[in-house]
Design a binder for these strands. Structure first.
Lengths: 342, 342
DNA sequence: TTGAAAGCGCTAACAC
DNA sequence: GTGTTAGCGCTTTCAA
């Protein structure tokens, strides 16, 4: 193995000089830098990660904790993870992948061993068991999602309440008076992941303000579950002309069922979705939708966690910071004027 | 920070004894082990990962390299990644997440720095640029997917050729004589990822053997692309009664379009899919399918890479090993006797 | 069954 | 602008 000492000898300088050329932490003459750089290339030197971590007590690794669950829309998780990994690289960091399986213990293990020096948690629950552990460790961390108590925490998420409000306002502006919300699986609400509730709260509030009647129904997703939900909706509110869907697995079934029932979209019924862009554009009717900005969320999470790490090294202490990304509604082919208003 | 020396002092033993209690590499009296274990717990000691890696030159980290692409079915990638992470933990290892973005350079960096001591590559292409780099580094590695030349490599994958053959045989046994294959996006074939070609090859061969006429058409997926593909198929082969789909994004559109055209599944047309179980069971008609065993692939990849690492430490050298998982066809509601045969 | 001690390769004062 | 040197916390011979 090629070591720093080998490079130093080859370049005719001391070890520390090589180290400083690499870290840029002190000024080096152009000539020396040149010689060292050349030696590094010639010998094919790579600094040993473990040795560096030991000496500097920084591993340059961010741990990313993912949920194991399957009731969430997986591509969003994946897009966040990829965004985290690529953004981390742009900061010269790598990403350690942890699954939720180990639970709070993983936080202790990874941070206690110095394996990672920062952490990003995905799919945070309102009352997440990992948070006390994290707070106690003092590790710079960023949550994707919003827990009940954000004191001392940094969080990133889509502003789901605003997203809900946006959907309600859009349908109202088209003259719809009765709308139905097809939500996530009941388990998602029971787990209190937060985002689903926040969307519904935003919808409800704006709907009330605009004088809309609104019905909210959780839905497991899939064809059969959607069929049952849809039947119930039209049974209870035959006058429903607008749908808001926040459940990727319910999108295709919903459109397919409406078609089969002879309800044209958007002539008879309008549909707005809260979902990733691709789901909206790939649907049988391109959907008017509020995008879940997965990539942006991953990127911001890394930006924030790096800022926190930097602050910590400078001895600053950071205030809580909750960053809610503003939703954007894109109008496509699935929404139009309410039938009565035409 | 609590160090090994702290534990040793607290337990009244030497540092090496603590180390050996932890590693189990030499026998320790029950009494001593007990004292040491207690001290570790009391002090809340966690070995420093960097120091350990430096002294032992093993990081206990497996690097997992994922593709960045979006034309693959993402949940499969994700399920493999989660399976890799959880299986790795059962071996006491962690997983470093690399995206394909850095390309071959990532292999050099991660292995050269001793950050990871083994590697798993996903979505390997027939002529993958990372392979020479890997071979040169001598790092224990396992590929998920099959390159053109597997000399000296360990690979895991579904036996897609056998999967194709199984689909052809199933349709033939039901009396179908003309079948159409809806494949992955053209880009997937152009990239020569292998799996798509292998499925088609297996289909073609068995179809020929059983006297089936077969048409193969790549498809981008999504509603519009599927509509165009379907029109062409029935235009060229009006007698087509069986479909094989290997494209998750085409499944729902295909079923939806057939329904709209008044072709009942499975009475008029049978459909077999090569896809994850969930896609098959969630479809509007539960699909007869050959599952892509994502979890199993991730798990086996870790098993094999750990075996390779172990062998390397014992100085053995391993022969090539290509492990093709046997496909299983599950009959559901989307296939039935060919109309003519009823 | 246990201890002593020599590194592993790098960083970061401290000198000049 | 550069060199010297003392660790960082652990593993592993070597010795007892």
């Amino acid at each position: 193995m090629v070591t720093l000492a080998d490079v130093a000898r080859h370049a005719g300088v001391s070890a520390s000089t090589v180290s400083y050329v690499l870290s840029g932490k002190r000024s080096i003459s152009a000539a020396t830098r040149e010689r060292v750089t050349r030696s590094i290339a010639e010998l094919g030197y790579h600094p040993h990660a473990g040795a560096r971590a030991l000496a500097s007590s920084r591993s340059d690794i961010i741990a990313l904790m993912m949920p194991l669950r399957t009731d969430m829309y997986v591509p969003v998780m994946m897009e966040i993870a990829v965004a985290v990994a690529t953004t981390a690289r742009s900061y010269g960091h790598d990403v350690l992948l942890l699954t939720g399986e180990e639970g709070p213990e993983a936080v202790r293990r990874v941070v206690g061993s110095g394996l990672a020096d920062a952490m990003i948690l995905m799919d945070v629950e309102l009352d997440d068991a990992r948070l006390p552990q994290l707070a106690a460790s003092g590790t710079p961390a960023v949550l994707i999602g919003l827990p009940a108590d954000t004191t001392g925490l940094t969080c990133v998420d889509l502003d789901f309440a605003a997203a809900g409000a946006l959907c309600a306002a859009h349908l109202a502006s088209l003259g719809h008076r009765e709308i139905a919300v097809v939500g996530e699986a009941a388990a998602v609400y029971e787990r209190h992941t937060g985002f689903a509730e926040r969307t519904v709260a935003g919808l409800r509030e704006r709907a009330a303000a605009l004088g809309l009647r609104m019905l909210h129904r959780p839905c497991e997703g899939g064809y059969d579950a959607m069929a049952a939900t849809l039947a119930r909706v039209f049974d209870e509110r035959p006058g429903t002309t607008g749908f808001v869907v926040q459940n990727e697995k319910a999108v295709d079934p919903l459109l397919s069922l409406l078609r089969r029932q002879g309800r044209a979209v958007p002539e008879d019924v309008s549909v707005v979705a809260v979902c990733p862009e691709q789901v909206a554009t790939d649907a049988s009717v391109p959907l008017t939708s509020v995008a879940v900005p997965a990539h942006e969320m991953g990127r911001r999470a890394v930006d924030l966690v790096m800022a926190r790490s930097g602050a910590r090294e400078r001895g600053e202490d950071l205030a809580d910071r909750v960053e809610l990304l503003p939703p954007e509604l894109t109008v496509r082919a699935s929404t139009g004027p309410a039938p009565a208003a035409r």
